[in-house]
């Protein structure tokens, strides 16, 4: 649990030399990635999960007629991304919580938004990596999804933009739940309704790609615009959410009485 005093303290970078935000975020992300490379926990669990899901899809949908595949494959892709994303996001701040390093990071001379962007970057990397496993595999398994092989650039752009929309929302709420006292169950309660528009958008675009729809690039542009909006709003909200709590005193101090007024 984060110390209220640390959280309430102003950010320390007011007098420090100004390091560009992108560089700060990169340094933080590099730190996370270095740790990740040491034990590969996130990457391996996510990749294994993806593999299992793929096997399940292959078994369940192997006999699907080609006409139905264009409808089913986008669903498989983004459902898998949503699950892997939730898995990654619950872990992404766990390390900070276990070793209590978030408090240390908060006292560093960094912009708080840089923390958000670093976490967003790592999450995006992991789930895009899983998507990069999923897409070609789905392309091999299902004839209707061969487009993923034929138009790799479009497919990659779609994957990155869709994952970004998901990760932008997810990183914010994972951070918020890391500071609140560990009710991680709530992450999926929050995450799935909130990311559903982004996922529907990604779903539509993927279907357009599979069907060779002319409007695919329009959808891609709209998805990019949605990404911009989501990242902007999330980074705007990150500091107030992370800096914790103007909780009512009674909630912080249950000793005052048995039960707070409903």
């Amino acid at each position: 649990m984060l110390d209220a005093a640390v959280l309430a303290a102003p950010p320390c970078d007011t007098t420090a030399p100004v390091v560009p935000l992108a560089r700060q975020a990169w340094l933080l992300a590099k730190n996370d990635l270095r740790q990740e490379l040491r034990d590969l926990e996130l990457v391996l669990t996510a990749a294994f999960f993806t593999l299992v899901v793929l096997v399940m899809f292959a078994l369940a949908f192997a006999a699907l007629p080609a006409a139905d595949q264009t409808l089913a494959v986008p669903g498989m892709l983004w459902l898998a991304v949503a699950f892997v994303g939730a898995l990654t996001l619950t872990r992404i701040f766990d390390r900070e919580r276990e070793a209590d390093t978030l408090r240390a990071v908060l006292t560093w001379p960094v912009d708080r938004v840089a923390i958000y962007f670093s976490k967003l970057g790592v999450t995006l990397l992991v789930i895009t990596g899983c998507g990069a496993l999923l897409m070609p595999a789905l392309g091999l398994l299902f004839p209707a999804a061969e487009v993923f092989w034929q138009r790799p650039l479009d497919a990659a752009a779609l994957l990155v933009l869709g994952c970004l929309a998901y990760a932008a929302v997810g990183a914010l709420f994972a951070a918020g739940l890391a500071t609140a006292s560990g009710k991680n169950v709530l992450l999926s309660v929050i995450l799935y309704p909130l990311t559903s528009p982004a996922l529907i958008f990604a779903l539509v675009s993927t279907r357009a790609l599979l069907e060779g729809h002319a409007q695919f690039h329009t959808y891609l542009g709209q998805l990019a615009a949605l990404d911009a909006v989501l990242v902007a709003v999330a980074s705007w909200l990150f500091e107030p959410v992370l800096l914790g709590s103007n909780a009512r005193p009674a909630e912080r101090r249950p000793s005052a009485r048995a039960k707070r007024t409903p």
Binding site: A180, L194, V229, L237, S245, R252
Partner: peptide, 25 residues
Amino acid sequence: RYGAAGSERLAAALAVFGAVDVPVI
């Protein structure tokens, strides 16, 4: 209702996203 103490800011962020989501949805 069920979030731990301190999650009211998180809930507020959720509401903001909900409002942003209205046109997107």
